[in-house]
């Protein structure tokens, strides 16, 4: 950048310096506005977890009587934070979401990682088509995947509920896991496995002592991604859930007509805090690992 502006003085670049400076400043302002646009709703979500819906008229605050439509600012309150588990439906839905996300992560990471290993380590006929097939779910609108799965469950007479949601989540997560782990596995030194075998390690021992530790960062990244995707999925879940089983996003959808309770924003803020903490922790661990060992 510095070299570029140095040359500008020489006047090789056509446009006058002030114009280029203006353009450069414009880019900065424009980008800042973009960030603001992205972050404004996040700010609103956190802010409205401290909301008490209602109207102030003639200096007197009247709490919303019917429902708790958390779409307009009433006044500041920490009521929802004091009692986030006040609404059993919401709490149950959140627990269901966590359960499904955990199970999805375990299953999808296991079978997705195996696929990634197969695709990176081996050369075999059919590798190309399989790789393409693996990407297909990523290029399809959720509503199409969701509806086709629903049609399948209906035609097989499988009642929709916890199991069908889990099946659907694993289905759309597998591709993400395989793609993420695959990216990390490229450049992996497979000869280390051979070395371990040559030194007399059994295949199991080689896998657990050599292969697994080396691919763990990739698996960890894929696991976090899967958990987040599963926790946040709405469309496919909504189309394949039964009337008894409700996840956190579905519960939000169901309450949007009757009035979105403030507790939803509390849960969302908590999810935000936990995710940011995990991300920061990950960065910290990565930085420590990359730092050369001082002795």
């Amino acid at each position: 950048m510095a070299a570029g502006s140095g040359r500008a003085v020489v006047g090789r670049q056509g446009a006058p310096l002030w114009l280029r400076k203006l353009g450069s400043m414009f880019l900065n302002v424009y980008a800042m506005a973009g960030f603001l646009y992205l972050l404004l709703p996040v700010f609103v979500i956190v802010l409205f977890s401290f909301n008490e819906p209602g109207i102030t008229r003639d200096g007197v605050f009247r709490p919303a009587v019917r429902g708790v439509r958390n779409y307009r600012w009433g006044r500041f309150s920490i009521d929802a934070w004091k009692d986030p588990f006040k609404l059993p439906d919401l709490t149950n839905a959140f627990q269901t979401s966590l359960k499904i996300a955990a199970l999805t992560t375990v299953i999808a990471v296991a079978i997705g990682t195996l696929m990634a290993i197969a695709l990176v380590k081996y050369d075999f006929r059919g590798k190309g088509p399989i790789s393409t097939f693996l990407i297909l779910p990523l290029t399809m609108p959720e509503v199409v995947m969701g509806l086709s799965l629903l049609v399948l469950f209906v035609s097989w007479g499988i009642p929709r509920g916890f199991l069908t949601i889990l099946i659907a989540h694993v289905m759309f997560s597998v591709s993400y896991v395989a793609t993420t782990v695959k990216a990390r596995l490229r450049g992996f030194e497979w000869r280390l496995e051979e070395a371990a075998a040559d030194l007399g390690a059994s295949p199991q021992r080689t896998f657990f002592k050599v292969t697994l530790p080396l691919i763990t960062p990739g698996i960890f990244a894929a696991a976090l991604l899967t958990f987040a995707l599963s926790l946040d999925d709405f469309v496919i879940t909504y189309l394949n859930r039964g009337p008894q089983v409700t996840t956190f996003p579905v519960q939000i959808w169901l309450t949007k007509k009757s009035g979105v309770p403030v507790q939803i924003n509390v849960f969302a803020t908590l999810v935000l805090i936990v995710s940011v903490s995990i991300a920061l922790l990950g960065l910290y661990v990565q930085r420590r690992r990359e730092r050369p060992v001082a002795d």
């Binding site: 709703p41 996040v42 609103v44 409205f48 779409y71 939803i264 969302a268």
Partner: peptide, 27 residues
């Protein structure tokens, strides 16, 4: 890295709540 983190920050909330937040903004 910090700027990239800001770009993905909205994903750390929930899709539906983000959209409801828009509903609040354009109220």
């Amino acid at each position: 890295n910090a700027l990239l983190a800001l770009v993905v920050l909205p994903f750390f909330t929930t899709y539906l709540i983000r959209t409801i937040a828009w509903r609040v903004i354009v109220d």
